[in-house]
Simulated scan of single mutants.
Amino acid sequence: MKGVLMVNLGSPESPTAKDVKPYLDEFLMDERVIDVPNILRNIIVRGIILQTRPKKSAEAYAKIWWDEGSPLVVISERFAKKVSTQIQMPVALGMRYGKMSIKKAMQELKDKGVDDVILVPLYPHYAMSSFETVVVKTMEVKDEFFPEMKITTLPAFYKNEDYIKVLSESIAKHLEGFEYDHILFSYHGIPERHIRKSDPTKFHCKIDGSCCQTNSVAHNTCYRHQCYDTTERVKKYLGLPEDKVSVSFQSRLPNDPWLKPYTDFEFERFPKEGKKRLAVITPAFVSDCLETLEEIAMEGKEQFQEAGGDTYKHIPCLNDDDSWVSVMAEWLNNWEKTEKLPV
């Protein structure tokens, strides 16, 4: 029997330092997130970051927490429930980190008689710290607890025409009536070394401004290329002016080169160039979360306006938009009938 396992990032149980600390510990101790030797990772995470970060992160979570719980979890649950009404297969939702574990979700499917699973990492782009870690963890859980299950993974859908269409039309809807000077596509940041580590050729990805434009098998796992490709496809679909669109990367750790340009630097730069009305979209996520709701929608607005900006518009993620639900349901229904996945 076929079934669907959707997996998103995860969330602490509450916006308190007590609950944030174990969540951050699991997240940051993932070798695909902080990819250094285990001894060094222990020192960085448990000896440094977890000494101060939980309190600060809890305060940030408190700013965006909903009555129903974590926005990312609530939105993911709504999305999964809506999709389940449009397909004939059982749907279970798990999180890579936190108590809503992948194992629990797989057990839920097993209890319903499912032994043929399509894994849906809820990330449009491939990165070792998001898409890859979900796939690896799911296979580890399968091998240990559910060896009878067959797992097929929905590939990164960053350039799928249906996805680009629904993303573009969502952006257009939120831009109605807003006269912008610039649109910033801000993607989650990752260390530059992750790009090189994910390159199967071990020589193509140089992050030199040209490799992303040169066709290569490396693009199948190159997060940077895929982010720029998504932007170009949306720009083309909507007919956006070349000089009014750019890409940046948010979130980073100090003393480590991450993908540039940095979003917060762009917030400070735009007003100086006369770009006083800014719209920001975060396509690395399909569900609004701490990073989009607090770092971009709140802190980003404050940084931009303090630098001299005027109007700031944060465009929400696709979340549980009905058009996005229909696209996912169509992909899954097609897989159930033909076992073909979208590209």
Rank of each mutant, 00 (worst) to 15 (best):
K2L: 15
G3H: 04
G3W: 02
S11I: 06
E13G: 13
T16R: 01
E31N: 15
E31D: 12
I34K: 00
P37R: 00
I39Q: 11
I39E: 10
V45P: 03
R46K: 09
R46M: 04
I48C: 03
L50D: 05
S57C: 09
E59T: 13
A62D: 14
P71G: 04
K81F: 08
V83Y: 00
V83G: 03
T85Y: 11
I87T: 10
M89K: 10
R96Q: 14
R96H: 08
G98F: 02
K99G: 03
I102V: 14
E108S: 14
K110P: 11
K110R: 11
G113M: 07
D115R: 08
V120T: 08
L122V: 13
P124D: 07
A127L: 06
T133V: 10
E140H: 10
V141I: 15
D143H: 12
T153W: 06
L154H: 03
L154I: 12
L154W: 02
P155A: 09
P155I: 08
E161K: 13
D162L: 10
D162C: 07
Y163P: 15
I164N: 00
L167G: 00
S170M: 04
H174G: 01
E176V: 07
G177Q: 05
F178I: 00
E179P: 02
E179L: 04
Y180I: 03
H188E: 12
P200Q: 14
K202Y: 09
F203A: 14
I207L: 13
S210C: 15
Q213P: 06
T214C: 12
V217M: 12
R224F: 09
D229E: 15
R233A: 05
R233E: 07
K236R: 15
L238Q: 05
V245P: 02
P254V: 05
P257I: 03
P271V: 05
K275T: 03
I281N: 00
T282E: 02
A284S: 12
F285M: 08
D288G: 01
I296S: 05
G300H: 01
E302K: 12
A307S: 13
G309L: 00
G309T: 08
T311Y: 01
Y312N: 04
K313N: 06
P316K: 01
L318Q: 02
L318D: 04
N319S: 09
D320M: 06
D321P: 15
D321Y: 07
V325D: 04
V325Q: 02
S326V: 13
V327P: 03
M328P: 10
E339R: 10
V343D: 14
